Deep mutational scan, measured.
Amino acid sequence: MEQGTVKWFNAEKGFGFIERENGDDVFVHFSAIQGDGFKSLDEGQAVTFDVEEGQRGPQAANVQKA
């Protein structure tokens, strides 16, 4: 798993971006967030995640709040 920081996340649209430790950004969809209840992330929040190849390039999977 990688570690990163939430760059931004739009809860209304259900997606955002995580900044990886290497400085690259990776797309995150709310469906990739682990846990119960409303799935959202806060700007600046530390997270761990896997990276999978999506239809439009790399995207975060198995996102967990650190």
Rank of each mutant, 00 (worst) to 15 (best):
A32F: 05
R20Q: 07
F38S: 07
I18V: 04
V28T: 03
S31K: 09
F27R: 03
V28G: 01
E53N: 13
F17K: 04
E52W: 12
T5W: 15
R56M: 09
G23D: 10
D50E: 13
F17H: 03
L41Q: 02
M1C: 08
A46V: 11
N10V: 05
F9Y: 10
V63N: 00
F15A: 02
F49P: 00
S40W: 13
Q64N: 12
K65R: 11
A60M: 01
V47C: 05
V26T: 04
E21Q: 13
T5V: 13
E53D: 11
Q34W: 10
S31A: 07
F38K: 08
D50R: 10
E53T: 12
A32T: 05
D50H: 13
F30T: 04
E52A: 10
E21H: 14
F38M: 07
V6R: 00
V47N: 01
G37D: 06
Q55Y: 15
A46R: 15
E2S: 11
N62W: 06
E12R: 15
K39P: 07
N62L: 05
G14V: 02
F9E: 00
H29Y: 05
N10R: 10
F38C: 09
S40D: 07
S40F: 13
R20T: 08
F38L: 09
F30A: 06
E12P: 08
G35S: 09
F27V: 02
K7N: 03
V47E: 00
E12S: 14
F30Q: 05
Q3K: 15
Q45D: 13
D24N: 14
F49Q: 01
V26K: 01
T48A: 07
V28A: 03
D50V: 13
F27N: 02
A60C: 05
A46M: 13
S31F: 05
E43C: 10
E52L: 12
R56D: 08
K13R: 13
S31E: 04
W8T: 03
H29R: 04
F27H: 02
V6K: 01
P58Y: 11
F38T: 07
G4D: 01
V28R: 00
E12H: 15
V63Q: 00
Q59C: 07
V51G: 02
A11E: 08
T48M: 11
P58W: 11
Q34P: 06
Q3T: 14
N22H: 12
E52I: 15
E12W: 15
G44P: 02
K65P: 12
A66G: 10
T5L: 10
G35H: 08
G57V: 04
K13C: 07
F49I: 02
E12G: 13
G37T: 07
Q59K: 09
G16S: 00
A66I: 14
L41R: 02
A46Y: 11
V63P: 01
G4H: 01
E21V: 14
K7I: 06
E2R: 08
F27C: 03
E19I: 15
F49E: 00
G44K: 08
F15R: 02
T48S: 10
R20N: 06
D24P: 15
A46G: 09
P58G: 05
A60F: 01
F17E: 03
D24W: 11
V63R: 00
F9N: 00
I18Q: 00
V6L: 05
N10A: 08
G35A: 10
M1H: 13
E53A: 11
Q3H: 14
E12N: 14
Q34T: 11
F15M: 06
K13D: 04
G54T: 13
V47T: 03
G57T: 04
V26G: 00
F15V: 05
A11C: 10
Q59D: 02
A61W: 09
V28K: 00
E19L: 15
V26D: 00
F15Q: 03
K7G: 03
F38P: 09
G44D: 05
F30E: 04
F17T: 03
R56T: 07
Q45K: 05
E43K: 15
I18E: 00
W8F: 08
E12M: 14
I33C: 03
P58M: 10
Q34D: 08
R56H: 11
V51R: 04
A61V: 14
K39S: 06
N10I: 06
G14K: 04
G16Q: 00
K39E: 05
F9C: 02
G14F: 02
E52R: 10
N22S: 12
E12F: 15
G23H: 09
G37H: 06
A66Q: 12
E52D: 08
H29G: 03
R20I: 07
A60K: 00
E53V: 14
V51M: 10
K7L: 06
N10L: 08
F17I: 07
N62R: 09
A11I: 13
A60W: 01
